[in-house]
Amino acid sequence: MSEQVITIGNVLRADIRSFVIASRIPAPDVPTFGTFVRAPIQQGRRQLIGLVYDIRLQDDPFLRNLAVTLDETNPAHQEVIADQQQRAVPVEISVAAVGYRDEDGAYRYGYPPQPPMILKQITVCPEAEVAAITAQPDWMQPLLDSPDAPADALIIRTLQRAQRVHPPAAQEAYWLQAGRFLARQLGREPLRLETLLRQLQT
């Protein structure tokens, strides 16, 4: 599989359900809510798959110092303002684990056998991998019970994004499959299910 590897940072802390990445990356490279990422686990034999569910810009004393001086309307500050837009910003990115890629290349959904180790590098999953992960709706299962991630908003955003990586002819089946999965999982929560399905329809 030919793929462009985009590294977004290193693991700062982790448990079996989620992990946090510390990073200094330019603003345009900060991943968005609902991005699939992966991290090596078990000495790189397996790849944990997760979804970005929170992005926190950390306090930046350098920027605080500049903020009192810079004036967006001052022509003498144009270059510095442009520089700050490209400057690597310190961010913490939270990721919810949804499964892992096994040694045989197959995707297993649910919690991984081990969290990623501290300082392991995290990369963004390329489109082909997102298509493979979301071919089955089971990646949603760990999210539905997540105490930390905003599960419903994350599922909707991820389904919408993942739709684009599936062939147009398969998209109707993709939505139906996702809807049926959610109906089975949330059978005891009809209000939540209804809200989710309504948002998916829009």
């Binding site: 022509p75 270059e79 442009a82 520089d83 837009q85 490209q86």
Partner: peptide, 13 residues
Amino acid sequence: GLRFTYNGQAPTE
């Protein structure tokens, strides 16, 4: 190193 040109553009890193 930062290359800073007074031309309204972002400097290069």
